[in-house]
């Protein structure tokens, strides 16, 4: 039967989770999760047709270039890949994007940004990590700064954020720093997600589940 075939076909997709479940655990409605599934199908079949987002497919979507190396895109991919099995499954995609929803708790956005910048995952943002990220940003942009200038920027930022002066930024210091500089997590909110079904109507093929 048509209805049952459609359901079983979706169930066989690795990592597929029911929109009703995902909607109950994220800021998205069921319709929005279904719209995200249409986007997910496109992204997850752009290079390897297996309904899973591989790193190269993520890079391709972000940069229109599958081979573009970018420290921050790698970090985002790793954080989205909650099971750490090298791919972003649909449930991981929706749950992670939920953090970028305008209605997601600010606290969650601040924590995600902290984990993003804690490159070595030590529970702290250290000075060498901050410098590595500044160098990575300069590498991808046209901005050229002398090493002295870079050191000066890193020193100033670090001394502003490292309140207790122990040489590393902990989560509490990060929260305090972000509260003084809220623009730091501006990129943690994607206004499109507020109503993805209206912003991307072509992704909404049909609503299979009653809201």
């Amino acid at each position: 039967m048509g209805c049952c075939y459609s359901t079983s076909k979706r169930t066989r997709t690795p990592g597929y989770e029911e929109p009703t479940v995902l909607a109950s655990q994220t800021p998205f409605t069921v319709s929005e999760v279904e719209a995200l599934h249409e986007l997910y199908k496109k992204l997850s079949n752009s290079i390897i047709e297996d309904n899973l987002i591989h790193r190269e497919e993520f890079q391709l979507a972000l940069f229109r270039n599958r081979n573009k190396k970018n420290l921050f895109a790698d970090r985002i991919f790793d954080l989205f890949d909650l099971k750490r099995n090298g791919v972003i499954e649909f449930g991981e995609f929706v749950r992670s994007l939920g953090l970028f929803h305008p209605n997601a708790p600010l606290e969650d956005k601040i924590t995600f940004a902290f984990r993003l910048y804690d490159l070595k995952q030590t529970g702290f943002i250290e000075r060498d990590e901050l410098k590595e990220m500044v160098l990575a940003l300069l590498h991808e942009s046209d901005l050229e700064l002398s090493d002295d200038m870079i050191e000066s920027i890193v020193d100033k930022t670090f001394s502003d954020a490292d309140i207790n002066g122990d040489g590393k930024i902990d989560q509490e210091e990060w929260k305090a720093f972000v509260s003084k500089h809220p623009s730091l997590i501006r990129n943690m909110t994607l206004p499109y997600l507020k109503d993805i079904t209206l912003a991307f109507p072509s992704f909404v093929v049909r609503t299979e589940v009653e809201e």
Binding site: L39, A61, F72, A73, L137, E140, S152, I153
Partner: peptide, 26 residues
């Protein structure tokens, strides 16, 4: 912007790799 007044995290946050809106471009 004078380098001394730059905030390193502000610089970093401008990375294209952190701009997920690109995922939604058709």
């Amino acid at each position: 912007v004078a380098p001394a007044t730059m905030n390193a995290f502000e610089l970093i946050s401008k990375s294209q790799g952190l701009n997920l809106s690109s995922l939604f471009e058709k």
